[in-house]
Design a protein around this nucleic acid. Structure first.
Lengths: 199, 199
DNA sequence: CGCGACGTTGATTTGCCTCAACGATTGTGG
DNA sequence: CCACAATCGTTGAGGCAAATCAACGTCGCG
């Protein structure tokens, strides 16, 4: 008798929200998953390593970020509970990543190897639809974010961030928000103390 | 007796490079395609319209761009021959687009309705794999571009652009390159006239 | 030919960064 | 439970990358 471990529940639910999986198919997916705990500030992946896993967040929150030549961090993505995170370039091409991924809170995560995903596409065809949908939606999000970074001021980008991720803001250090919208913590602090300009 | 119009050849080839399609399946896809010619500077989609089509470029070159509140254009994407282009947010959610799409050269394009795509996923399952792969790769590209825009200087971004799209540069007005990498045409001109700093 | 789009150049401005110093808060080990 | 260090946010002075505005030369094209 097979069963699905508790720590895979959230991930399976995420899939079932988008596509239909038989019990058997759920087992096949579940069989490829590895659960892991990650303490706050601990690195999962470091710049220079090849990232072989898609990462699903059960609880807590991760972030991916690059470090520029001056040592400054630039956050590409936050991944709270229920979200996936990965460096797609490294994952797809099996090349060394230029991103770091770490936990910003104590977290429980689920790892899925890219190799296993490619196999699962044959045994669980619906999974291909799931990841197509996910990729498309993620693509839409990154397109929008790039447009914003090209055409909006820092204050407007901050406003957008607050609107789009109101729940993330709670307990998130300001300097992470600054890094995400592409400004320094000092400048964000000054922005917030001023009499809130338009937008 | 069915056959595939010439103007669908390049698109079908693009699919066959990634997945296997039977003759019958090729016909099914081909049956949903609409070819169209677009003269230089002519708009295909305008800000505020809902974009219902994925667009494949047979020849020529298109661009997608937003216009900010000061009237400045910001180019999100170039699409030369063999590339797809669309505003994913508008396409997926059927909401008004914030992007314009126009031709920067006389072009021939092929249109594919989002509704037809969704139907084709049932009759041509391999198509789902094709678009999954495309979305993932596009996602990787946009992730990288966002990292670059967060962590690199204008000169470095220009260098990257030249490395990544050497063939695009030919005949492309400088102001479009400037808009793509997120600077003004004046500043790009000054950068290029100066004794080429590091990188 | 003449007009409009493009690139160039210079003077000036500005949005955001850098560096440095300083409280406040958190958390940690003794 | 306190003392101390580390982390975080704040504030100020000064600096720089890139924008703005304007003028001008050139080229391609109708």
């Amino acid at each position: 008798m097979l069963y699905t471990p508790m720590s895979h529940e959230l991930l399976i639910q995420s899939i079932l929200k988008r596509v239909v999986l038989s019990d058997k198919e759920q087992q096949l997916v579940s069989g490829c998953l590895k659960t892991k705990k990650l303490k706050k500030k601990n690195l999962l992946y470091q710049e220079g390593e090849v990232q072989h896993h898609l990462v699903f967040v059960n609880s807590g929150c991760l972030r991916s970020y690059s470090i520029d030549k001056n040592g400054a961090e630039h956050i590409l993505q936050f991944a709270p509970s229920g979200w996936w995170i990965a460096d797609m370039k490294s994952l797809l091409n099996a090349v060394p990543s230029s991103l770091n991924i770490d936990a910003i809170e104590d977290s429980e995560i689920v790892l899925l190897k890219q190799l296993d995903i490619d196999n699962l596409y044959h045994t669980v065809p619906a999974l291909e639809r799931y990841f197509r949908i996910l990729s498309e939606r993620s693509l839409a999000t990154f397109q929008q974010r790039l447009i914003d970074s090209l055409s909006l001021t820092a204050a407007e980008r901050y406003g957008n961030f607050c609107e789009r991720y109101p729940s993330l803001i709670q307990g998130l250090p300001q300097k992470y928000v600054a890094s995400y919208i592409g400004i320094t913590p000092e400048f964000l602090s000054k922005m917030l103390s001023q009499p809130m300009k338009k937008r």
